[in-house]
Amino acid sequence: MTTLAAGRTRAREIAGTVVDPEMPMLTLVDLGVLRDVTESEVGVSVTITPTYSGCPAMATMRDDLVHALSDAGYAEVEVKVSLSPAWSSDWITAEGRRKLRAHGLSAPGPSPTGPVQLSLAPVRRAIDCPRCGSADVRLTSEFGPTACKALYQCNDCLEPFEHVKEI
């Protein structure tokens, strides 16, 4: 039993080193997509959840998990995808948010709750420039290079930056 419990921790630690292919400063733990790591006699089973339905990074995450755990000696590595509950940007950890900022990205605010509202006014987020800290920033596009990001520009230092969207 001790070996199993120790193994579970070890497998979790290894899975926790795998990074998001599109935001490699974040581990899957930081991003909140690593839902479960369970070890059995034959190997290890990892559960991840997609950030967006069409997120092309899922297959890479799966492959990287299989690699990391196989290299660590696990014979059978199974990666399951859990659709429910749907991923929320609230699951990005405090450490993940710190890393985003350190790499020039703006972290998401609280994800919307309650009934879905139509919002025709320009999006207003209380965010500041990850480079100079100025709160005088403007949205350049609500859709960015990947599904999870919006594009901003700082009006003070003029730095363009990416904001991870609330979802």
Binding site: P50, Y52, S53, L83, A86, W87, P112, V116, L118, S119, L120, V123, E142, F143, A147, K165, I167
Partner: peptide, 11 residues
């Protein structure tokens, strides 16, 4: 999951 995505599309 789709609700979260399509909310952005409609906006």
């Amino acid at each position: 999951k789709g609700v979260k995505e399509v909310t952005y599309h409609r906006d």
